[in-house]
Design a protein around this nucleic acid. Structure first.
Length: 424
DNA sequence: TCTGGGGTCCTAGGACCC
DNA sequence: TCTGGGGTCCTAGGACCC
């Protein structure tokens, strides 16, 4: 059977999400900012045309925002996550074989669809997603995932393609590869692009003409897979079930600089609780907690310090209380007085399924009780919104919390969340 | 003044085992 | 003086993704 994939990619996803609930933003330059309103992480086409690059620090475009040229939004991941679910739901009506690749991208396995009018089908996908969710998407169809990526990129870029490109015959595939610069290829990052350019590889087509041995030697097996994919040989399968995560990290830069242990402890405890919650969601526990802290590397006048510490739990756990306890032990070991801290984080690794925990005969923790308590806590969170009930170490509205000056309301999430918006 | 966050995979090298 | 060879596991670092 010949393979065939569609890649459906939402256009300027975060900006489009804001537009769904504020249609007056259509046709206007919109950007969405990273945490703490630090830099630009999503741009509408109009914002791109104004020359705003990805990752631009906010202060550089502040003037354009103030004079109304650009509308800026703090990132609102609850809203984006919810709309993403709706898009993926819609796509699963077209085939059950889908791989949710990221918050705004989805692969569809269309191997059985070769006889269909693929062009019409792609347009139908695009129109349906727009109609059902309000989110505009581009659709690229090709025999391999890497080629579907190429197709999708050109579908989005070319006005003539109008958001849809089907690449199935060798002639058009070759043309598409020729039109794709090497740095725009999926899997070719800055380092490889620079390296390949020195070897006179300028386009995806040039890349496909390299020898497999050479690619293996310089770009590992990953490069070889990409080479084959671009030559039309499918090596990357559809991954319908997301594998459970091997490591989970929660980290943030602080809204303000912090210089006391108490503030860092509140932040660290909150990140540990977030990790615990993520673990419970995927029904697993962890044995290693790493805490890291760092000062602001951009601030040349401040003394710099960064460090990390890993602590091993006696028994794998996903309880807020235990994770916070061990994270605080790790934090104590690395905290030093006299620095302006900018960021901290908690990473949990050595993750095992809840059902495969090695218990300790001398265990002093009542795990049944912990599990019940966490069940109740999660229930309260579902009913009344995040952080309504939490472990005291996490503090209340600490100075470390995110700066989000331009946040839109959580239009789609639970009523309880909306109530908490009103209360504020 | 202001510069994101959360992941993956692969490789090389060292420790250790038989 | 001779000083194997194969395997596994772990970690750090480097590349990439959205």
């Amino acid at each position: 059977m010949t393979s065939l994939f569609a890649l459906v990619d939402c256009n300027s996803f975060y900006c489009s999400c804001e537009r769904v609930f504020q249609p007056d933003l259509n046709g206007k330059a919109v950007v969405v900012l990273s945490n703490n309103d630090g830099c630009v992480i999503a741009r509408s086409n109009e914002a791109k045309e104004l020359g705003i690059p990805m990752g631009e620090p906010f202060f550089k475009i502040r003037r354009m925002v103030e004079n109304g040229q650009v509308r800026a939004f703090s990132s609102n991941y609850e809203l984006y996550g919810d709309l993403s679910d709706r898009v993926m739901q819609t796509l699963s009506h077209f085939t059950p074989c889908i791989e949710v690749y990221s918050i705004d991208e989805c692969f569809l396995d269309l191997s059985n669809f070769y006889k269909k009018d693929l062009f019409a089908y792609a347009h139908e996908i695009k129109a349906t997603v727009l109609q059902w969710t309000g989110i505009p998407v581009s659709v690229g169809i090709a025999p391999t995932k890497a080629l579907a990526k190429v197709a999708n990129r050109l579908a989005k870029k070319s006005r003539k393609a109008n958001g849809v490109l089907v690449l199935t015959d060798p002639y058009h595939i070759k043309k598409a590869l020729e039109a794709t610069s090497i740095e725009d290829v999926w899997g070719i990052g800055r380092q490889y692009a620079r390296f390949l350019r020195t070897r006179n590889v300028q386009t995806a087509l040039d890349f496909t003409n390299l020898s497999e041995n050479w690619v293996r030697q310089h770009m590992t097996i990953v490069g070889v897979r990409l080479l084959k994919e671009l030559r039309g040989e499918s090596c990357l399968e559809l991954e319908e079930v997301a594998p459970s995560k091997k490591g989970i990290c929660t980290s943030r830069s602080f809204g303000k600089k912090a210089d006391s242990f108490e503030v860092l402890q509140e932040a660290t405890a909150s990140y540990a609780a977030k990790c615990a919650k993520k673990l419970r969601r995927q029904k697993s526990c962890e044995r290693l907690v790493t805490v890291f802290v760092t000062t602001n590397r951009f601030s040349e006048n401040d003394r710099q310090y960064s460090n990390s510490k890993t602590v091993c739990l006696p028994v794998a756990s996903n309880s807020d209380i235990e994770l916070i306890h061990y994270a605080c032990i790790a934090l104590k070991a690395i905290y030093r007085d006299g620095y302006w801290y900018k960021k901290s984080g908690v990473i949990v690794t050595d993750i095992v399924p809840e059902t495969q925990i090695q218990y300790d005969l001398l265990d002093t923790v009542d795990r049944g009780k912990h599990n019940k308590l966490m069940g109740v806590l999660d229930g309260l969170t579902d009913r009344f919104g995040r952080d309504k009930v939490k472990v005291a170490t996490q503090g209340i509205d600490g100075v470390w919390q995110l700066k989000r000056d331009f946040k839109s309301p959580c239009y789609t999430t639970r009523i309880s969340d909306l109530q908490s918006v009103y209360v504020k």
